[in-house]
Design a protein around this nucleic acid. Structure first.
Lengths: 203, 203
DNA sequence: CAGTGGTCTAGACCACGTA
DNA sequence: ACGTGGTCTAGACCACTGA
């Protein structure tokens, strides 16, 4: 309903909101997918449709849709109408490595709150995963990660003892640990993620 | 050396090679990083420099550099000269979920060869990871993944028994298992990756 | 065939960081 | 003040898909 209602009612887009047009369009599409207005398999509005809908140029629309393609929200190929891939992963799986960059790319302000940073003997189950000898000491880092002040996730990271001293100099409340470590010449050689979704609030 | 040698010597770029200009530029940058000509921390050639170097428009250069930003090869922020992040991850960590799409985005042709697809009792160590009861049956999928015919990686995937029957109908040699499963209404709720690098050949 | 997306151009203005 | 990257426009041509 209301696909061509009068002059231009729908577009929740503003030219001087500080946020770029393509971000507003991308987030509008994301919202419509998240809210179920666009379901998996549904066709994504064509470039031409979005150009007219929001009154922007084609390049801007393409930039917006490119964001959704990058994280797998929509997909398809040349000639065909793009389709909604899935609501599943709003973020790329590997994006956890650079939470800060990911949140920033969504037009939000990343932050964090340190819950714990302590040296501990490694748990038996973790020893092999982290690649250290059973019984050795690891640093356990726990942070709440926020986007625009809204809690998004909790991440628990385990570092070998050798990394520990470098962590204390890092502003753990805001930055990307991996970016800082990279600046110290520490590269990620092996990565593992376990992702679970639990309700953070009851809607 | 040879930054302005005569007319236009350097550019290993062709306008009618079937490959898009931005891909050729992106791959040239990737090559220079991989070969050590550009090391971690080094400044990436500015947009203006690349525009003159390759004789293309700024938009094309931006599209090329956007690819390297997406996979974390280069990074930085507004106003500053972008810098090489690291040679480490040539691909985004989460990209494994869509190997096909990743290879295609690099301008290469993805393919695969099925090594094994068999139902087996789950190993004790895997039971918890996959989230099934110890002793139950899982499907073990092993494939060699190729880019332009070149072996790139081996992936081993373990699926719960319920998924098994859906796998037989999928062309495991070419497609993305996850894309097919998504078409059957199966979403990824939990993902884990372990990535190790071993020599596939001796250079 | 018309519609869609993919690529490329040439220009413009702005925001930021550094000198 | 200058160079950098970030955003946006308006147009063009091509490749592919589907009716």
């Amino acid at each position: 309903m209301s696909e061509h209602t009068g002059s231009r009612p729908h577009p929740p887009i503003s030219r001087r909101s500080g946020q770029s047009l393509y971000l507003q369009i991308a987030n509008d599409l994301r919202r419509r997918i998240a809210e179920g207005e666009l379901r998996t398999g549904d066709p994504v509005p064509s470039e031409q449709a979005l150009v007219e809908r929001f009154g922007v140029s084609r390049g801007t629309v393409r930039q917006a849709r490119a964001m959704l393609r990058a994280d797998g929200s929509i997909g398809g190929s040349q000639g065909r109408t793009l389709a909604v891939q899935g609501v599943n992963l709003t973020q790329p799986v590997g994006g956890l490595i650079t939470f800060s960059a990911w949140v920033r790319s969504l037009g939000m302000r990343p932050s964090g709150r340190l819950l714990r940073l302590s040296p501990e003997p490694v748990a038996a189950a973790e020893a092999e995963q982290v690649g250290v000898a059973p019984g050795s000491v690891v640093y356990r880092l726990e942070r709440v990660r926020l986007a625009d002040g809204e809690p998004l996730m909790v991440d628990r990271t385990v570092f070998p003892e050798a990394i520990g001293p470098m962590l204390v100099g890092i502003d753990l409340d805001s930055g990307s640990v991996y970016a800082e470590l990279a600046a110290h010449g520490i590269a990620v050689a092996s990565a593992g993620h376990r992702i679970d979704a639990i309700a953070a609030h009851c809607p």
